[in-house]
Design a protein around this nucleic acid. Structure first.
Length: 105
DNA sequence: CATCTGACGACCG
DNA sequence: GCGGTCGCCAGAT
């Protein structure tokens, strides 16, 4: 589907930064909103270089289920993103706003 | 075509 | 701060 665009956006997420499903959905204007973003990631073809692990739930929460969340956490930590069980630490700073970022210090 | 399910998000207790 | 519920929308069965 047009999930391609979602993937394209995800690929733009810089290393060590994350985006929420809601943001992603809004950024590419996915019809179903955040949920569709989630579906898109769930169906994301692995091995295509899509940093799906950089897409998290609102508030920087890891919404994946048991086995996968561990991998996501590991991938994030490998990029320097600190994670506590199911939540990204310093999410506010870690969050990446497409193009018009400019987060305050 | 009816129903269920879910990698969501906002609210409420 | 956390868990439970409701609302939403798109796919799958």
């Amino acid at each position: 589907m047009h999930w391609k665009i979602a993937y394209a956006q995800v690929k733009k997420i810089p290393r060590g930064r994350v985006m929420t499903y809601g943001q992603l959905a809004a950024a590419v204007k996915l019809p179903g909103g955040a949920r569709s973003a989630g579906r898109a990631m769930a169906a994301s073809p692995s091995g295509k270089g899509i940093p799906w692990h950089r897409v998290v739930g609102a508030g920087g929460r890891l919404l994946l289920r048991e086995p996968n969340v561990w991998m996501q956490r590991r991938l994030l930590e490998s990029e320097g993103v600190r994670v506590a069980e199911r939540r990204i630490l310093d999410f506010k700073m870690r969050q990446w706003l497409p193009v018009r970022k400019k987060r305050k210090a």
